[in-house]
């Protein structure tokens, strides 16, 4: 069970790598990320249709918010009841987001262990043998298969000159070190870009919602909280990116960009509806 899912995604990634991405690992990851997002598009579209009704329900929602201003528990309950009655819900749900978690975790395994999960024809004996031939000083602990892949030249993990199998670091002496800068500065940039795109995609999502909410921001404790949340997500992304190979950061970045385009199109639809109303 725990190897089935990574194997499944690994084979898909390998198929893309070999047949579509012209043996470019980075391009394969990008196509993989876009494909998974496209597969979840039906859920997103359903949600967009529902969002279009927000305008007409706005006045009633504001009334409820005013009425239970001082009782958050009651406010949440009443809001949910209201949504139920009108068959409308501004949230997209936990499932669409939770589906992404096994994909992320499996992808981490796939990137970390390409010989086991991605490439064909390597049994565990061969893998152990290949790893044992890698000199001790270039063997990276926890990423032995990646070291073996690079050492034996089995697969090229580079994308635009960046080795996506390496874990970025935040330590300035490595990022700007004379020998290591060429490798680790681009890796660091992937972390930065992942964090920046997280920030902007979250900003676009909140911007859309607060525009629809049209309530006085000074009175709204949510507005301040959301502002904080918007900084938490990019910060956590930045922090996490130093724990995993850069390929995962690339996947995350592409997901963010997809989200931004999707949100841009949704905002456009929202404006159109406003004009018609």
């Amino acid at each position: 069970m725990f190897t089935a899912i990574p194997t499944f995604f690994g084979r898909i990634l390998f198929f893309i790598y070999e047949n579509i991405a012209n043996n470019n690992y980075g391009v394969a990851l990008i196509i993989f990320a876009i494909t998974t997002r496209f597969l979840m598009l039906p859920l997103a579209l359903k949600q967009i249709k529902s969002s279009a009704r927000m305008q007409e329900l706005q006045p009633q929602m504001q009334e409820i918010q005013k009425k239970y201003k001082n009782d958050r528990e009651k406010l949440n309950q009443e809001m949910m009841k209201f949504y139920q009655e009108h068959k409308y819900n501004p949230m997209s749900g936990c499932l669409p987001i939770l589906i992404q978690m096994p994909i992320m975790i499996s992808l981490f395994s796939v990137i970390r262990r390409p010989l086991t999960y991605m490439l064909r024809g390597y049994d565990s004996e061969t893998i152990t043998d290949l790893i044992s031939k890698v000199p001790e000083d270039i063997l990276i602990r926890g990423y032995e298969e990646l070291s073996a892949v690079s050492f034996h030249g089995i697969m090229d993990l580079s994308f635009l000159g960046v080795n996506l199998g390496l874990v970025p670091t935040w330590r300035p002496e490595i990022i700007f070190g004379t020998d290591t800068m060429r490798i680790y500065l681009p890796l660091f940039l992937i972390s930065v870009i992942a964090a920046i795109t997280t920030y902007f995609s979250s900003k676009m999502m909140t911007a859309m919602r607060s525009k629809n909410d049209k309530k006085d921001k000074k009175d709204d404790p949510n507005a301040a909280m959301q502002k904080n949340m918007m900084l938490v997500a990019p910060f956590l992304t930045f922090f996490f990116s130093f724990q995993f190979p850069a390929g995962l950061g690339l996947y995350w970045t592409v997901g963010n960009l997809f989200q931004m385009v999707q949100q841009f199109l949704v905002n456009g639809v929202g404006k159109k509806n406003k004009k018609e109303a």
């Binding site: 949910m80 949230m91 997209s92 749900g93 936990c94 979250s202 909140t206 918007m230 997500a233």
Partner: peptide, 13 residues
């Protein structure tokens, strides 16, 4: 918090 926005369609989440 990584999800940026609350996403649950229910209360309680």
């Amino acid at each position: 918090p990584l999800k940026i926005m609350p996403c649950c369609r229910f209360y309680p989440t």
